[in-house]
Amino acid sequence: MTATKTPTERPPAQRVVRRAGDRLFAGSAKGSGIFILVVLAGVAAFLIGEAIPALTAPAEDVPGGEGLSGYIAPLVLGTLLGAVLALLVATPLAVGIALFVTYYAPRRIAAGLGYAIDLLAAIPSVVYGFWGLAVLAPALVPFHVWAADHLGWLPLFAGPASTSGRTMLTVGLVLAVMILPIISAIAREVFSQAPALHREAALALGATRWEMIKMAVLPYGKSGVIAGAMLGLGRALGETMAVAIVLSGGAGATLNLISSSNPSTIASNIALRFPEATGLGINTLIASGLVLFVITLAVNMLARWIVNRRADFSGAN
């Protein structure tokens, strides 16, 4: 009856009796969470482990004969080129789409239109590859010719124009379509959360719809759009199949977007070479995958950081 403990001992909440069922269930839930961390650590560890042979091999044994960095550098360039191009095209479009769906489209159909955009995200990337190869690439050939003729003074459009359209330019546009729904989904969300009070205040001052958006919506949604763009960038950097199918890559580093010799991207290069690779070739490809992993990780962490910082202020939850 009388407690043998002095009142100053452990507070009672810490000597809670826990049932076996509770302990088991809580344990497995926690275990699953820890398992995920282990998997992620495993991803990094296994990639590093399999990449080490390529890191330590003599330069002439690495495919291409110019050492690991000589092999990966053009791939990194190609990866960045395609992804940045996609980002530059997709971001303004996505902002426009998000504004259209949230503030311009008639209320009744806005949700349906948003759903149509979301469908873009549901289409498997291999199908985008098919479409890029069969439709977009040939359709862009005239533009390639035109750009080579009129914009040739820019290194980006130095030409000669590809006759198949399977260029970095086409890849960038396919990637832009693929990341459009990602960016616009986030932009839509932040735009629709812009405080109604500010929006109504702007309208009450006699602002036009665009002025209202400029005053009350865009400033509020800016960081959300940036974060969405970063997530889209992450996706574009890692996109494999669409690039592997559309791009005729494999040439060295070049900024030329419209010629038939393009640098490959890390991901598509792995997809194309891996099935036939052996020995050190595999290690080299895995090393390049590790580089991709690090790049996307950095981009995604940055994006999450922006999103989370914003969440702290938005007062959601």
């Binding site: 995920i36 998997v39 890692g238 995958g289 991709l292 996307t296 990780l297 995604n300």
Partner: peptide
């Protein structure tokens, strides 16, 4: 988990 959503499928 957030970071993991960004892992490229090839990786």
């Amino acid at each position: 988990v957030d970071v993991m959503t960004g892992i490229p499928s090839i990786v």
